[in-house]
Design a protein around this nucleic acid. Structure first.
Lengths: 225, 225
DNA sequence: GAATCCCATTGATTCACGTCAAATTCCTAC
DNA sequence: GTAGGAATTTGACGTGAATCAATGGGATTC
Protein backbone atom coordinates (compact mmCIF):
# COMPACT_ATOMS: atom_id res chain seq x y z
CA UNK A 1 0.00 0.00 0.00
CA UNK A 2 2.92 2.34 -0.47
CA UNK A 3 4.43 1.82 2.95
CA UNK A 4 8.13 1.31 3.43
CA UNK A 5 9.27 -1.96 4.89
CA UNK A 6 10.30 -0.43 8.19
CA UNK A 7 6.87 1.08 8.51
CA UNK A 8 5.18 -2.16 7.66
CA UNK A 9 7.07 -3.73 10.49
CA UNK A 10 5.96 -1.06 12.93
CA UNK A 11 2.39 -1.57 11.78
CA UNK A 12 2.74 -5.30 12.04
CA UNK A 13 3.95 -4.99 15.60
CA UNK A 14 0.70 -3.49 16.87
CA UNK A 15 -1.53 -6.08 15.19
CA UNK A 16 -2.66 -8.92 17.41
CA UNK A 17 -3.67 -12.29 16.10
CA UNK A 18 -6.49 -13.70 18.13
CA UNK A 19 -7.23 -17.35 18.74
CA UNK A 20 -9.76 -18.82 16.32
CA UNK A 21 -13.32 -17.76 16.96
CA UNK A 22 -16.39 -19.87 16.35
CA UNK A 23 -19.82 -19.53 14.85
CA UNK A 24 -22.01 -17.40 17.06
CA UNK A 25 -19.18 -15.70 18.94
CA UNK A 26 -19.32 -11.94 19.13
CA UNK A 27 -16.38 -9.78 18.17
CA UNK A 28 -18.20 -6.91 19.82
CA UNK A 29 -21.72 -5.80 20.53
CA UNK A 30 -23.57 -2.58 19.97
CA UNK A 31 -22.75 -0.24 22.82
CA UNK A 32 -19.38 -1.79 23.62
CA UNK A 33 -16.49 0.58 24.00
CA UNK A 34 -14.36 0.83 20.91
CA UNK A 35 -10.77 -0.33 21.25
CA UNK A 36 -9.82 -2.17 18.11
CA UNK A 37 -10.49 -2.49 14.46
CA UNK A 38 -10.75 -6.08 13.28
CA UNK A 39 -9.44 -7.66 10.13
CA UNK A 40 -10.81 -10.96 8.93
CA UNK A 41 -7.96 -13.36 8.17
CA UNK A 42 -10.05 -16.41 7.37
CA UNK A 43 -13.74 -17.16 7.77
CA UNK A 44 -16.52 -14.61 7.77
CA UNK A 45 -18.33 -12.18 10.02
CA UNK A 46 -21.62 -10.35 9.85
CA UNK A 47 -22.24 -6.92 11.30
CA UNK A 48 -25.74 -5.88 12.25
CA UNK A 49 -27.67 -3.23 14.09
CA UNK A 50 -29.93 -4.88 16.68
CA UNK A 51 -33.26 -3.29 17.53
CA UNK A 52 -34.97 -3.53 20.89
CA UNK A 53 -37.30 -6.36 20.06
CA UNK A 54 -34.62 -8.77 18.92
CA UNK A 55 -34.93 -7.85 15.28
CA UNK A 56 -31.90 -6.56 13.45
CA UNK A 57 -30.62 -4.97 10.29
CA UNK A 58 -27.69 -6.80 8.77
CA UNK A 59 -25.19 -4.17 7.68
CA UNK A 60 -22.59 -6.30 6.02
CA UNK A 61 -20.83 -9.61 5.57
CA UNK A 62 -17.10 -9.48 5.98
CA UNK A 63 -14.76 -11.82 4.17
CA UNK A 64 -11.02 -12.37 4.48
CA UNK A 65 -9.03 -9.18 4.07
CA UNK A 66 -11.90 -6.95 5.10
CA UNK A 67 -11.95 -4.47 7.94
CA UNK A 68 -14.59 -4.19 10.65
CA UNK A 69 -15.38 -1.44 13.11
CA UNK A 70 -14.81 1.83 11.27
CA UNK A 71 -18.19 3.20 12.29
CA UNK A 72 -17.14 3.08 15.93
CA UNK A 73 -14.39 5.66 15.68
CA UNK A 74 -16.68 8.64 15.99
CA UNK A 75 -17.87 8.17 19.56
CA UNK A 76 -15.55 5.36 20.57
CA UNK A 77 -18.68 3.23 20.89
CA UNK A 78 -19.69 0.41 18.59
CA UNK A 79 -22.90 1.21 16.78
CA UNK A 80 -23.40 -2.30 15.56
CA UNK A 81 -22.65 -5.83 16.65
CA UNK A 82 -20.32 -8.25 14.91
CA UNK A 83 -20.98 -11.97 14.97
CA UNK A 84 -18.81 -14.79 13.65
CA UNK A 85 -20.54 -16.81 10.93
CA UNK A 86 -18.07 -19.69 10.71
CA UNK A 87 -14.82 -20.57 12.45
CA UNK A 88 -12.64 -17.59 11.72
CA UNK A 89 -9.25 -16.08 12.41
CA UNK A 90 -9.45 -12.40 13.17
CA UNK A 91 -6.71 -9.83 13.75
CA UNK A 92 -7.14 -6.99 16.17
CA UNK A 93 -5.69 -3.57 15.59
CA UNK A 94 -5.75 -1.28 18.64
CA UNK A 95 -7.05 1.91 17.13
CA UNK A 96 -5.29 4.36 19.42
CA UNK A 97 -1.96 2.84 18.48
CA UNK A 98 -2.88 2.84 14.83
CA UNK A 99 -3.85 6.46 15.08
CA UNK A 100 -0.59 7.36 16.74
CA UNK A 101 1.38 5.47 14.15
CA UNK A 102 -0.52 7.10 11.34
CA UNK A 103 0.45 10.55 12.50
CA UNK A 104 4.13 9.66 12.06
CA UNK A 105 3.72 7.81 8.77
CA UNK A 106 1.99 10.03 6.22
CA UNK A 107 1.34 7.23 3.77
CA UNK A 108 -0.36 5.24 6.52
CA UNK A 109 -2.51 8.22 7.35
CA UNK A 110 -3.41 8.48 3.70
CA UNK A 111 -4.33 4.81 3.57
CA UNK A 112 -6.53 5.26 6.59
CA UNK A 113 -8.40 8.11 4.96
CA UNK A 114 -8.80 6.03 1.83
CA UNK A 115 -10.07 3.06 3.78
CA UNK A 116 -12.70 5.11 5.53
CA UNK A 117 -13.66 6.79 2.29
CA UNK A 118 -14.03 3.44 0.58
CA UNK A 119 -16.41 2.29 3.26
CA UNK A 120 -18.55 5.35 2.60
CA UNK A 121 -18.60 4.64 -1.12
CA UNK A 122 -19.63 1.06 -0.49
CA UNK A 123 -22.45 2.12 1.78
CA UNK A 124 -23.62 4.57 -0.85
CA UNK A 125 -23.69 1.84 -3.46
CA UNK A 126 -25.75 -0.22 -1.08
CA UNK A 127 -28.14 2.70 -0.64
CA UNK A 128 -28.63 2.80 -4.38
CA UNK A 129 -29.22 -0.94 -4.44
CA UNK A 130 -31.90 -0.73 -1.77
CA UNK A 131 -33.36 2.46 -3.14
CA UNK A 132 -33.80 1.57 -6.77
CA UNK A 133 -33.33 -2.12 -7.43
CA UNK A 134 -35.92 -4.85 -7.23
CA UNK A 135 -35.52 -8.19 -5.49
CA UNK A 136 -33.95 -9.98 -8.45
CA UNK A 137 -31.44 -7.21 -9.04
CA UNK A 138 -30.50 -7.11 -5.39
CA UNK A 139 -29.76 -10.80 -5.12
CA UNK A 140 -27.82 -10.78 -8.38
CA UNK A 141 -25.74 -7.86 -7.12
CA UNK A 142 -25.14 -9.66 -3.86
CA UNK A 143 -23.88 -12.79 -5.59
CA UNK A 144 -21.62 -10.79 -7.87
CA UNK A 145 -20.23 -8.92 -4.92
CA UNK A 146 -19.37 -12.17 -3.16
CA UNK A 147 -17.90 -13.56 -6.35
CA UNK A 148 -15.71 -10.51 -6.88
CA UNK A 149 -14.47 -10.52 -3.33
CA UNK A 150 -13.67 -14.22 -3.34
CA UNK A 151 -11.80 -13.82 -6.59
CA UNK A 152 -9.77 -10.93 -5.21
CA UNK A 153 -8.61 -13.20 -2.42
CA UNK A 154 -7.65 -16.01 -4.73
CA UNK A 155 -10.72 -18.17 -4.17
CA UNK A 156 -12.95 -19.38 -6.95
CA UNK A 157 -15.33 -16.67 -8.13
CA UNK A 158 -17.75 -19.33 -9.34
CA UNK A 159 -17.84 -21.94 -6.68
CA UNK A 160 -18.27 -21.05 -3.04
CA UNK A 161 -20.18 -21.67 0.15
CA UNK A 162 -22.50 -19.19 1.78
CA UNK A 163 -21.73 -18.82 5.44
CA UNK A 164 -24.93 -16.87 6.07
CA UNK A 165 -28.51 -18.09 6.11
CA UNK A 166 -31.22 -17.16 3.62
CA UNK A 167 -32.73 -15.19 6.41
CA UNK A 168 -29.60 -13.11 6.84
CA UNK A 169 -29.29 -12.55 3.11
CA UNK A 170 -32.87 -11.35 2.97
CA UNK A 171 -32.38 -9.10 5.95
CA UNK A 172 -29.27 -7.57 4.38
CA UNK A 173 -31.05 -6.99 1.07
CA UNK A 174 -34.32 -5.75 2.53
CA UNK A 175 -36.21 -8.85 1.37
CA UNK A 176 -38.23 -11.61 3.00
CA UNK A 177 -36.60 -15.03 3.37
CA UNK A 178 -39.18 -16.54 1.08
CA UNK A 179 -38.31 -14.09 -1.65
CA UNK A 180 -34.64 -14.99 -1.44
CA UNK A 181 -35.45 -18.65 -1.57
CA UNK A 182 -37.71 -18.24 -4.59
CA UNK A 183 -35.08 -16.21 -6.39
CA UNK A 184 -32.42 -18.86 -5.87
CA UNK A 185 -34.82 -21.36 -7.34
CA UNK A 186 -35.60 -19.11 -10.27
CA UNK A 187 -31.97 -18.34 -10.99
CA UNK A 188 -31.28 -22.05 -10.98
CA UNK A 189 -34.20 -22.75 -13.30
CA UNK A 190 -32.88 -20.10 -15.66
CA UNK A 191 -29.47 -21.75 -15.68
CA UNK A 192 -27.68 -18.82 -14.05
CA UNK A 193 -26.39 -20.88 -11.18
CA UNK A 194 -26.66 -24.10 -9.27
CA UNK A 195 -27.52 -23.98 -5.64
CA UNK A 196 -27.64 -26.73 -3.10
CA UNK A 197 -28.17 -25.49 0.37
CA UNK A 198 -25.08 -23.39 1.19
CA UNK A 199 -23.17 -24.37 -1.90
CA UNK A 200 -23.31 -21.98 -4.85
CA UNK A 201 -22.01 -22.55 -8.34
CA UNK A 202 -22.30 -19.51 -10.56
CA UNK A 203 -22.75 -20.64 -14.14
CA UNK A 204 -23.37 -17.38 -15.93
CA UNK A 205 -21.76 -14.38 -14.30
CA UNK A 206 -22.40 -12.24 -17.36
CA UNK A 207 -26.11 -12.85 -17.18
CA UNK A 208 -26.08 -11.98 -13.49
CA UNK A 209 -24.23 -8.76 -14.29
CA UNK A 210 -26.81 -7.92 -16.89
CA UNK A 211 -29.53 -8.35 -14.32
CA UNK A 212 -27.88 -5.90 -11.94
CA UNK A 213 -27.63 -3.31 -14.68
CA UNK A 214 -31.13 -3.86 -15.98
CA UNK A 215 -32.31 -1.03 -13.78
CA UNK A 216 -30.36 1.58 -15.70
CA UNK A 217 -32.12 1.11 -18.99
CA UNK A 218 -34.97 3.40 -19.86
CA UNK A 219 -36.38 6.07 -17.64
CA UNK A 220 -37.33 4.57 -14.34
CA UNK A 221 -39.89 5.67 -11.88
CA UNK A 222 -39.08 5.07 -8.31
CA UNK A 223 -35.96 7.12 -8.05
CA UNK A 224 -35.23 8.81 -11.30
CA UNK A 225 -34.17 12.41 -11.97
CA UNK B 1 -13.40 20.53 18.37
CA UNK B 2 -10.42 20.32 20.70
CA UNK B 3 -8.00 22.26 18.51
CA UNK B 4 -5.76 24.94 19.92
CA UNK B 5 -6.26 28.46 18.68
CA UNK B 6 -3.03 28.50 16.71
CA UNK B 7 -4.10 25.34 14.96
CA UNK B 8 -7.51 26.72 14.20
CA UNK B 9 -5.82 29.60 12.50
CA UNK B 10 -3.68 27.31 10.38
CA UNK B 11 -6.78 25.38 9.42
CA UNK B 12 -8.66 28.54 8.69
CA UNK B 13 -5.92 29.69 6.36
CA UNK B 14 -6.38 26.82 3.93
CA UNK B 15 -10.15 27.18 3.72
CA UNK B 16 -11.41 29.18 0.73
CA UNK B 17 -14.73 30.96 0.70
CA UNK B 18 -16.26 30.73 -2.72
CA UNK B 19 -18.57 33.28 -4.28
CA UNK B 20 -22.24 32.44 -3.84
CA UNK B 21 -23.49 29.63 -6.01
CA UNK B 22 -26.96 29.34 -7.47
CA UNK B 23 -29.65 26.74 -7.88
CA UNK B 24 -28.60 24.20 -10.47
CA UNK B 25 -24.87 24.90 -10.27
CA UNK B 26 -22.65 21.91 -9.79
CA UNK B 27 -20.03 21.79 -7.09
CA UNK B 28 -18.60 18.78 -8.86
CA UNK B 29 -19.76 15.95 -11.05
CA UNK B 30 -19.26 12.23 -10.91
CA UNK B 31 -15.90 11.42 -12.44
CA UNK B 32 -14.34 14.79 -11.68
CA UNK B 33 -10.94 14.75 -10.07
CA UNK B 34 -11.06 15.22 -6.35
CA UNK B 35 -9.34 18.32 -5.00
CA UNK B 36 -11.45 19.76 -2.25
CA UNK B 37 -13.93 18.92 0.42
CA UNK B 38 -16.82 21.35 0.61
CA UNK B 39 -18.58 22.76 3.62
CA UNK B 40 -22.01 24.31 3.30
CA UNK B 41 -22.04 27.76 4.95
CA UNK B 42 -25.58 28.72 3.96
CA UNK B 43 -28.10 27.19 1.60
CA UNK B 44 -28.31 23.53 0.65
CA UNK B 45 -26.83 20.98 -1.69
CA UNK B 46 -27.86 17.56 -2.89
CA UNK B 47 -25.46 14.78 -3.78
CA UNK B 48 -26.55 12.07 -6.15
CA UNK B 49 -25.22 9.18 -8.19
CA UNK B 50 -26.27 9.62 -11.83
CA UNK B 51 -26.97 6.56 -13.95
CA UNK B 52 -26.47 6.38 -17.69
CA UNK B 53 -30.03 7.08 -18.72
CA UNK B 54 -30.37 10.33 -16.83
CA UNK B 55 -31.86 8.69 -13.78
CA UNK B 56 -30.15 9.15 -10.46
CA UNK B 57 -30.03 8.08 -6.86
CA UNK B 58 -30.09 10.97 -4.42
CA UNK B 59 -27.52 10.19 -1.73
CA UNK B 60 -28.00 13.11 0.58
CA UNK B 61 -29.13 16.64 1.25
CA UNK B 62 -26.53 18.85 2.84
CA UNK B 63 -27.40 21.73 5.11
CA UNK B 64 -25.26 24.45 6.67
CA UNK B 65 -22.34 23.07 8.60
CA UNK B 66 -22.25 19.80 6.71
CA UNK B 67 -19.36 18.37 4.76
CA UNK B 68 -19.43 17.09 1.20
CA UNK B 69 -17.02 14.95 -0.76
CA UNK B 70 -15.68 12.38 1.69
CA UNK B 71 -16.43 9.49 -0.63
CA UNK B 72 -13.97 10.89 -3.17
CA UNK B 73 -10.86 10.45 -1.06
CA UNK B 74 -10.36 6.83 -1.93
CA UNK B 75 -9.56 7.16 -5.63
CA UNK B 76 -9.25 10.91 -5.82
CA UNK B 77 -12.31 10.78 -8.09
CA UNK B 78 -15.79 11.94 -7.20
CA UNK B 79 -18.24 9.05 -7.18
CA UNK B 80 -21.26 11.27 -7.07
CA UNK B 81 -22.35 14.69 -8.28
CA UNK B 82 -23.21 17.64 -6.08
CA UNK B 83 -25.81 20.16 -7.16
CA UNK B 84 -26.82 23.41 -5.46
CA UNK B 85 -30.48 23.44 -4.46
CA UNK B 86 -30.78 27.13 -3.56
CA UNK B 87 -28.41 30.08 -3.54
CA UNK B 88 -25.65 28.93 -1.23
CA UNK B 89 -22.30 29.90 0.20
CA UNK B 90 -19.84 27.05 0.18
CA UNK B 91 -16.32 26.78 1.57
CA UNK B 92 -13.66 24.74 -0.15
CA UNK B 93 -11.01 22.83 1.74
CA UNK B 94 -8.14 21.58 -0.43
CA UNK B 95 -7.79 18.03 0.77
CA UNK B 96 -4.07 17.62 0.22
CA UNK B 97 -3.41 20.61 2.43
CA UNK B 98 -5.85 19.36 5.00
CA UNK B 99 -4.17 15.99 4.98
CA UNK B 100 -0.78 17.54 5.42
CA UNK B 101 -1.98 19.72 8.24
CA UNK B 102 -3.64 16.77 9.93
CA UNK B 103 -0.37 14.89 10.13
CA UNK B 104 1.14 17.68 12.20
CA UNK B 105 -1.92 18.27 14.39
CA UNK B 106 -2.95 15.02 16.08
CA UNK B 107 -6.28 16.37 17.25
CA UNK B 108 -7.11 17.41 13.71
CA UNK B 109 -6.25 13.97 12.48
CA UNK B 110 -8.52 12.55 15.13
CA UNK B 111 -11.34 14.84 14.08
CA UNK B 112 -10.91 13.74 10.49
CA UNK B 113 -11.19 10.10 11.46
CA UNK B 114 -14.26 10.90 13.48
CA UNK B 115 -15.84 12.83 10.64
CA UNK B 116 -15.33 9.99 8.20
CA UNK B 117 -16.59 7.50 10.75
CA UNK B 118 -19.68 9.58 11.36
CA UNK B 119 -20.48 9.58 7.69
CA UNK B 120 -20.33 5.78 7.72
CA UNK B 121 -22.67 5.60 10.68
CA UNK B 122 -25.12 7.90 8.96
CA UNK B 123 -25.08 5.83 5.81
CA UNK B 124 -25.68 2.72 7.88
CA UNK B 125 -28.68 4.33 9.52
CA UNK B 126 -29.97 5.15 6.08
CA UNK B 127 -29.49 1.54 5.04
CA UNK B 128 -31.65 0.47 7.95
CA UNK B 129 -34.28 3.03 7.00
CA UNK B 130 -34.46 1.78 3.43
CA UNK B 131 -34.15 -1.85 4.42
CA UNK B 132 -36.77 -2.09 7.09
CA UNK B 133 -39.05 0.93 7.21
CA UNK B 134 -42.19 1.56 5.22
CA UNK B 135 -43.06 4.72 3.34
CA UNK B 136 -44.65 6.49 6.26
CA UNK B 137 -41.74 5.72 8.57
CA UNK B 138 -39.24 6.89 6.00
CA UNK B 139 -40.84 10.25 5.45
CA UNK B 140 -41.29 10.81 9.17
CA UNK B 141 -37.62 9.98 9.74
CA UNK B 142 -36.65 12.36 6.96
CA UNK B 143 -38.62 15.22 8.47
CA UNK B 144 -37.19 14.58 11.90
CA UNK B 145 -33.70 14.51 10.48
CA UNK B 146 -34.21 17.90 8.83
CA UNK B 147 -35.76 19.26 11.99
CA UNK B 148 -32.87 18.09 14.14
CA UNK B 149 -30.28 19.48 11.78
CA UNK B 150 -32.00 22.86 11.51
CA UNK B 151 -32.26 23.04 15.26
CA UNK B 152 -28.59 22.26 15.72
CA UNK B 153 -27.78 25.23 13.52
CA UNK B 154 -30.04 27.58 15.41
CA UNK B 155 -32.94 27.54 12.96
CA UNK B 156 -36.46 26.64 13.94
CA UNK B 157 -36.92 22.88 14.21
CA UNK B 158 -40.63 23.31 13.50
CA UNK B 159 -40.87 25.78 10.72
CA UNK B 160 -38.74 25.51 7.61
CA UNK B 161 -38.67 25.44 3.84
CA UNK B 162 -37.81 22.43 1.77
CA UNK B 163 -35.24 23.28 -0.84
CA UNK B 164 -35.73 19.98 -2.61
CA UNK B 165 -38.67 18.79 -4.70
CA UNK B 166 -41.06 16.00 -3.82
CA UNK B 167 -39.41 14.07 -6.58
CA UNK B 168 -36.01 14.39 -4.94
CA UNK B 169 -37.38 13.44 -1.55
CA UNK B 170 -38.97 10.36 -3.05
CA UNK B 171 -35.81 9.46 -4.88
CA UNK B 172 -33.77 9.81 -1.69
CA UNK B 173 -36.21 7.68 0.31
CA UNK B 174 -36.77 5.06 -2.36
CA UNK B 175 -40.38 6.12 -2.91
CA UNK B 176 -42.46 7.36 -5.82
CA UNK B 177 -43.29 11.07 -5.96
CA UNK B 178 -46.96 10.29 -5.62
CA UNK B 179 -46.35 8.38 -2.42
CA UNK B 180 -44.49 11.31 -0.91
CA UNK B 181 -47.25 13.68 -1.91
CA UNK B 182 -49.94 11.45 -0.44
CA UNK B 183 -48.01 11.08 2.79
CA UNK B 184 -47.67 14.84 3.21
CA UNK B 185 -51.40 15.10 2.76
CA UNK B 186 -52.04 12.33 5.22
CA UNK B 187 -49.69 13.75 7.84
CA UNK B 188 -51.47 17.06 7.47
CA UNK B 189 -54.90 15.46 7.81
CA UNK B 190 -53.70 13.73 10.95
CA UNK B 191 -52.57 17.04 12.39
CA UNK B 192 -48.90 16.11 12.48
CA UNK B 193 -47.85 19.04 10.34
CA UNK B 194 -48.95 21.75 8.01
CA UNK B 195 -47.56 21.81 4.53
CA UNK B 196 -47.98 24.34 1.82
CA UNK B 197 -45.80 23.68 -1.14
CA UNK B 198 -42.22 24.05 0.17
CA UNK B 199 -43.20 25.40 3.54
CA UNK B 200 -43.36 22.90 6.39
CA UNK B 201 -44.67 23.47 9.86
CA UNK B 202 -44.18 20.51 12.17
CA UNK B 203 -46.95 20.47 14.73
CA UNK B 204 -46.32 17.22 16.53
CA UNK B 205 -42.71 16.13 16.55
CA UNK B 206 -43.39 13.50 19.19
CA UNK B 207 -45.97 11.81 17.04
CA UNK B 208 -43.54 11.82 14.13
CA UNK B 209 -40.89 10.26 16.34
CA UNK B 210 -43.32 7.60 17.39
CA UNK B 211 -43.94 6.78 13.76
CA UNK B 212 -40.25 6.28 13.05
CA UNK B 213 -39.96 3.91 15.97
CA UNK B 214 -43.11 2.01 15.15
CA UNK B 215 -41.02 -0.49 13.25
CA UNK B 216 -39.23 -1.71 16.33
CA UNK B 217 -42.30 -3.03 18.09
CA UNK B 218 -43.09 -6.69 17.81
CA UNK B 219 -41.23 -9.20 15.75
CA UNK B 220 -41.04 -8.00 12.19
CA UNK B 221 -40.73 -9.91 9.00
CA UNK B 222 -38.72 -8.25 6.33
CA UNK B 223 -35.47 -7.95 8.17
CA UNK B 224 -35.73 -9.59 11.51
CA UNK B 225 -33.29 -11.94 13.25
C1' DG C 1 -30.37 -43.09 17.40
C1' DA C 2 -34.29 -40.59 18.38
C1' DA C 3 -36.21 -36.10 19.33
C1' DT C 4 -36.11 -31.35 18.49
C1' DC C 5 -35.30 -27.29 16.27
C1' DC C 6 -34.00 -24.56 12.67
C1' DC C 7 -33.59 -23.72 7.94
C1' DA C 8 -35.31 -23.83 3.45
C1' DT C 9 -38.73 -24.39 0.05
C1' DT C 10 -43.23 -23.93 -2.10
C1' DG C 11 -48.02 -22.47 -2.65
C1' DA C 12 -51.99 -19.31 -1.78
C1' DT C 13 -53.36 -14.89 -0.59
C1' DT C 14 -52.98 -10.00 0.59
C1' DC C 15 -51.49 -5.43 0.54
C1' DA C 16 -48.49 -1.39 0.25
C1' DC C 17 -46.87 1.10 -2.96
C1' DG C 18 -45.79 1.78 -7.81
C1' DT C 19 -47.87 2.95 -12.23
C1' DC C 20 -50.89 5.37 -15.21
C1' DA C 21 -53.76 9.21 -16.01
C1' DA C 22 -55.59 13.64 -15.50
C1' DA C 23 -56.46 18.11 -13.31
C1' DT C 24 -54.54 22.13 -10.94
C1' DT C 25 -51.30 25.35 -9.59
C1' DC C 26 -46.97 27.42 -9.77
C1' DC C 27 -43.06 29.29 -12.03
C1' DT C 28 -40.42 31.23 -15.71
C1' DA C 29 -39.68 33.59 -19.69
C1' DC C 30 -40.70 36.42 -23.39
C1' DG D 1 -49.71 39.55 -19.11
C1' DT D 2 -49.61 35.45 -21.38
C1' DA D 3 -47.89 30.98 -22.83
C1' DG D 4 -45.60 26.94 -21.85
C1' DG D 5 -43.70 23.74 -18.91
C1' DA D 6 -42.75 21.78 -14.54
C1' DA D 7 -44.24 20.43 -9.98
C1' DT D 8 -47.77 18.77 -7.19
C1' DT D 9 -51.86 16.55 -6.13
C1' DT D 10 -55.51 13.13 -6.49
C1' DG D 11 -57.85 9.00 -8.15
C1' DA D 12 -58.10 4.35 -10.20
C1' DC D 13 -55.71 0.33 -10.96
C1' DG D 14 -52.07 -3.27 -11.15
C1' DT D 15 -48.38 -5.87 -9.26
C1' DG D 16 -44.18 -7.35 -6.89
C1' DA D 17 -43.07 -8.85 -2.90
C1' DA D 18 -44.71 -9.64 1.92
C1' DT D 19 -47.46 -12.50 4.69
C1' DC D 20 -49.56 -16.70 6.04
C1' DA D 21 -49.36 -21.55 6.06
C1' DA D 22 -47.63 -26.05 5.60
C1' DT D 23 -44.06 -29.50 4.47
C1' DG D 24 -39.61 -31.59 4.27
C1' DG D 25 -34.76 -31.96 5.27
C1' DG D 26 -30.41 -31.11 7.92
C1' DA D 27 -28.25 -30.43 11.90
C1' DT D 28 -27.64 -30.55 16.93
C1' DT D 29 -28.45 -32.63 21.45
C1' DC D 30 -28.57 -36.02 24.91
Amino acid sequence: MGLESGDVERLDRIVKRSRPLHRGDHLFREGDGFQCLYIVKTGSVKTYAPSEDGGEQVLGFHLPGELIGLDAIENAIHHCSAKILETSAICEVPFSQLEELSSTIPSLQHQMYRLLSKEITQDENMLTLLGKNNAEERLAAFLISLSTRFKRRGFSPYDFYLSMSRHEIGNYLGLAVETVSRLFTRFQDEGLLQVERKHILLKDLDALSRITQRQQQGENKRQST
